[in-house]
Design a protein around this nucleic acid. Structure first.
Lengths: 102, 102
DNA sequence: CTTATATGTCGAAATATTTGGTTATGAAAG
DNA sequence: CTTTCATAACCAAATATTTCGACATATAAG
């Protein structure tokens, strides 16, 4: 039994942990699935196809961005979001590697 | 923009979604990290190294088991848990494959 | 400069999750 | 059979998250 991790997540896992927490919500999972390959979407477009209010969507987008799952850039009045594939892959790979050692 | 997923998670993703939700909690993440390779742990052992009460740990174990992240078996009075590596890998692979198509 | 538009932020209410004490169940021990 | 032990189930309280309307900010348009 490894008791090193029972009080706090080790720092190496902090990022992974944040990504999984961000992805651990159906609304946010659905937002991710909305993106087509390479697509950039602005907040309004995402709100339009969502069942949630603008501010709820904004809240979820913030969580996804802070976890590094989405990247964003403001262009004119709009803020565009897109998948940060690299970051997601890194987190998944970290867990995959952990499983391989298990 | 793929609007097929904006109302509900597609059934193919239901499992994946449940795994990520289960893993999207620090207590549960820490429980997983407690298992050493191939190890089976009973509830009491996990409670012992946890900061939570017995019933809170039980609650988290149930969520992990229902998501298929952990398997369990009752042996005598104790219930032993272990990582269901196959299930976790399948979910991670599903997302990996999705990312590759993006 | 004023107005319109896109988005973010705030705050309170609604909702969901987590938590731990208590009770129930089932298996072993006496 | 009774007691003891491990765990699950139940329930209410505590806590956290989500939600949305109202307000704030920033940019573009008129």
């Amino acid at each position: 039994m490894n008791i090193n991790y029972t009080k706090e997540i080790p720092s190496a896992w902090k990022n992974v942990s944040r990504v999984f927490s961000a992805l651990g919500d159906e609304h946010r999972q659905r937002i991710l699935l909305t993106f087509e390959p390479g697509e950039h979407l602005n907040v309004g477009q995402i709100v339009e196809v969502s069942t949630l209010s603008r501010s709820a969507v904004s809240h979820h987008l913030r969580i996804l961005r802070e976890a590094g799952v989405l990247d964003s850039e403001k262009i004119g009045k709009e803020v565009y979001f897109w998948l940060n594939k690299k970051q997601i892959k890194e987190s998944l790979t970290a867990v995959m590697d952990y499983l391989k050692s298990q």
